[in-house]
């Protein structure tokens, strides 16, 4: 990973996610503001854009899921033909976000995101 901004304590949480093969970057994003809290991204990934857009989509999905009576959102995956965005909202309101290649092991990324969310608290 080249672009890295890791406030103390968040590095190990991001490492859990970025070590999965096919993950191009991981971030912690403030869910309310859509701002970057910490990031560990490969060259060429725009962290600011990932943070703002992931938070916006997360907020829309959260509202829809609450309205559907499905409770809080635990994990979501935006699937695209050239990759994807995988997100786990932590109870604190921080989003743990992974940017992945199309053939990534989604189940494994999900597990690591959940572990990272636990670590972030």
């Amino acid at each position: 990973m080249t672009g890295a901004s890791r406030p103390a304590g968040y590095g190990p949480a991001l490492d859990l996610v970025t070590r999965v093969r096919g993950v191009r970057g991981a971030m912690l994003v403030s869910g309310d503001d859509g701002l970057v809290v910490a990031e560990q991204l490969m060259e060429g990934i725009k962290g600011v854009a990932v943070a703002a857009l992931a938070a916006s989509l997360a907020s829309r999905l959260r509202r829809a899921m609450e309205a559907a009576g499905l409770g809080v959102s635990l994990f979501w995956h935006l699937q695209c033909d050239q990759g994807g965005l995988l997100v786990v909202p932590a109870p604190s309101g921080v989003l743990i976000v992974a940017v992945a290649e199309p053939d990534v092991n989604v189940g494994l990324v999900r597990l690591e995101l959940l572990r990272a969310a636990e670590a972030v608290g």
Binding site: S30, A52, S56
Partner: peptide, 15 residues
């Protein structure tokens, strides 16, 4: 409006 947008989105599209 904080229900509709966020600082991140405003900053991103301000660029």
């Amino acid at each position: 409006d904080l229900h509709v947008s966020s600082l991140g989105l405003v900053q991103l599209f301000f660029e």
